[in-house]
Amino acid sequence: MMLRVEALTLSFGGVRALNEVGFEVAEGEFFGILGPNGAGKTSLFNCLSGLVAPTGSVTVEGTELLGRRPHEIAELGVARTFQNLGLFGSMSVTGNILVGAHRQISGGALSAALRWPRTFRSERQARERADELIDLLGLGAYRDATVDTLPYGIRKRVEIAKAVASGPKLLLLDEPVAGMNHEETDQFVEFVLELKARMGLTIVMIEHDVPMVMRISDRILALDFGEVIGVGTPEEIRHNERFISAYLGTPAGADAPAEPQLHGGNR
């Protein structure tokens, strides 16, 4: 089992952001997470990447994540993207991707200062891999551009390139297509599936674009008010009454046109 979450509970003061959440993700799976705004989806990701301290258990290939610091979790092969982007504004696209590749490059301050050949060889290899990723994601025209100057859609792509540059086993995507148009979303799906196949990734994705999640996920977790309201294949979730009522507000919504289009998260 790639990822196993058990009895995960996270409270902020009196508010239970997550309550006894448990699910499993198999290796190579594309796992979608759906839920209305405030359902606890991003809190769940923050637990997985060590930004908050919940109770319960989260294991990746049998290794416990809770209690580890974010950079230690990254060492275990877990990478994530942020909903509002975690890019380094003053650096170039290549620079951002190379920061993503941090754990794949060897050498510290001293060996760099002395121009130690091994360090610079590893640096060159990382730059070659970064260039490959740049071509793969169609970022060639922006290779040396400062990230702050790029449009939002391009920055979202850089964010994903940065995350996969670490060569992760498990990739967590937090609303990767929020704010994108239909065409950009299709493009995103194309290259994420390609990356997944090529790098043997297991992907967990939070997204509000319900049709898209239904289309590409192997299985889906539906959350509402910090609780699991359903886990299963897209077909099972589509017919899950608790899911439908969570998204549409009333049980009568079951008769409404399928696939509600909620676009939370875009500002």
Partner: peptide
């Protein structure tokens, strides 16, 4: 221009994102 320097700038620009990328 190498790993250590990028880590410094990354920490300056966005500390949380730098940690997520595996930077201590």
């Amino acid at each position: 221009r190498t790993r250590f320097g990028r880590a410094l700038v990354a920490v300056r620009e966005a500390e949380t994102a730098a940690e997520i990328a595996g930077i201590n």
